[in-house]
């Protein structure tokens, strides 16, 4: 039994890195929200399990050839839905205010997404449309991407855009840490970016994809949360 360190899967490695970074930053945000360390550790376990389960299940639904939970890839929206769903269950089970939990977990979603997209870039999945310009990518070996074709590096663009969204969210976090506005902003900004960048993906079918439909739902939920937050402020 030999472990070949030359063959470490980069895709899985970057997903692990993103979850690890997410876990560390959450402890800092929890301090600002004055949440007990034990609650953070337990809710984090719930969230990680929710993210992994949701991401894999949605991927299995989208790509019907994947019958195995273990071998299925990760779908970003599945991760978000799974993570939030697990937090809702956690808050109901242990009577922790959901608002506080969402305010520490949701702002980190763009960062989580931007790091895991680097893994996608190296693995060759979620590749862009055919493009022959500055910064085009050619895959000589990849299980997913078409080989020896010039492609648009959409994964890197997604990484940059989501990182910028994360920085913006951090700037407005201090002002809005006690209301759900921050959650609304994340949903709207991530939804818009994902909707638009989907057009640059190879998988775009010319009309509207399932990811774009979910993006629209996220944008509507985000607007609804922000409007509700404003109404509460006015009261």
């Amino acid at each position: 039994m030999l472990i070949n360190f030359e063959n470490i899967p980069v895709y899985g490695l970057f997903i692990l890195i993103s979850l690890f970074v997410n876990s560390i930053i959450i402890f800092f945000l929890a301090k600002a929200q004055k949440i007990n360390k034990n609650v953070v550790l337990c809710s984090l376990t719930y969230e990680l399990i929710g993210i992994i389960t949701g991401a894999k299940i949605l991927n299995m639904i989208q790509i019907k050839e994947n019958n195995s939970f273990y071998y299925a890839g990760f779908s970003s929206y599945g991760g978000v839905i799974g993570g939030i769903f697990s937090l809702v269950i956690f808050s109901r089970l242990y009577k922790i205010p959901l608002k506080k939990l969402l305010n520490i977990y949701v702002p980190l979603l763009p960062l989580l997404y931007s790091i895991s997209k680097i893994g996608c870039f190296f693995a060759g999945c979620c590749y862009g449309i055919e493009y022959d310009g500055i910064g085009c990518v050619i895959y000589e070996y990849s299980k997913d991407a078409p080989l020896n074709i010039k492609l648009f590096p959409v994964q890197i663009i997604e990484t940059i855009v989501n990182f910028i969204i994360f920085i913006f969210i951090l700037f407005i976090y201090k002002k809005n840490k006690d209301n759900l506005k921050i959650v609304g902003f994340v949903f709207i900004l991530c939804g818009i970016s994902k909707f638009l960048l989907e057009f640059l993906r190879f998988s775009w079918n010319g009309f509207i994809t399932s990811t774009q439909i979910i993006s629209i739902i996220f944008i509507i939920i985000g607007i609804f949360i922000n409007m509700k937050g404003r109404k509460n402020e006015e009261k």
């Binding site: 609650v39 399990i49 273990y70 071998y71």
Partner: peptide, 23 residues
Amino acid sequence: KDIFIICLMLSLLTMVDAKMKYN
């Protein structure tokens, strides 16, 4: 491997329950 992952998740979730209730 699917059963393996599900068992690990259930194991962790049960432990979280103990940690939240007793700690």
